[in-house]
Amino acid sequence: MTTQNQKLKMALTSTPMILIYVIAVFCIVVSIRQPAFLSPATAINIGRAGIFTMCFAICEMVVIISGGIDVSFPAVGCVAMYVPLYLNYHGMLPDNVFAFFGLAMFIGLIFGILNGILVSYLKLPPLIATLATSSIASGGLILALGTREFTTLPPSLEALYRVNLVTYTDAATGFTYPLTILFLVPVALCVVMALVMHFTMLGRGLYAIGGDANAARIAGFNVRLLQFFAYIFCGVAAGATAMIYTTLMHSSTTTALMGDEMIIIAACVVGGCRLTGGHGNVGGTILGVLLITLVQTNLNMLGIPTSWQTFAVGLVLLLGAILTSIQAKRQTKLGKI
């Protein structure tokens, strides 16, 4: 029987709480070394830097909860950011924000369907299948359209880029820190997905198939359709996110996002998603993204050269993974009820 005391102890040592402690300690250490850290500018910087990480992490989270994994989204994202600008450059796509985002999402949809077919209909192992999709997407893109780099945005995207939510001006230095309107995209995505995952049969179905696909089939869930949804959602949202990336970074290349899958998966796992499926939620993922973004953007403030950033992210991922294992063991120790 769990007493009130035990419950409190469990809550204080749960994975999200540990993440909050780690984030707090990190912030305190950084702010001791660099008092300038504690300013609205930092918040805006992190908010800016975390936009794509957050969006991609939500995509990946949905797939991981359904019991799969998608490592193709960086390649798919590259196709989705490159093709619209390429077509526009060659005068085949009107200069319209909706056209750009629409096409990007359509491209994501196509690859999502491909992943869905491979995983849910052909029952291929998700990691290997999406790795194959990734190479088809990136190889095929360069094969068909060649490598260029678009560094100037079409006017409509440029206009979007200039819309800011708030702008903070540092009184001492006079630097301005604008926060783009696109920051609302990850916010909206998080809110919507939190609601979908918790309050709809679709969301609960994703948890169910991730927990036990066979039990889900017996209960009457359409397992294939749900898996399909996860990959399609991931593709479509990754396409839109890639277009946000282009808008904010003023850059669209065929390889811009390649290699990002690691950081995204790291954020999800650190945030409590289990690669075996069925576990994880939007709140945890937000914390995971926050921690990873903090580490990425503020490592140099701790006196660690940026060339060690990759290693640091790996270390955070490793510790996060070990933490989940320890938490699981702790729970078994508590015994069955």
């Binding site: 309050f199 049969m201 039990a215 209960a219 009457g220 069925g278």
Partner: peptide, 26 residues
């Protein structure tokens, strides 16, 4: 038992019924 280890007791009991009623929201 064909139950879902990652879901709560309440959900395990009631989810099938919701599914049968073709509910969209939980």
């Amino acid at each position: 038992f064909a139950v879902f280890p990652n879901l709560t007791v309440a959900e395990n009991i009631a989810l099938n019924g919701e599914l049968k009623n073709k509910a969209k929201l939980v």
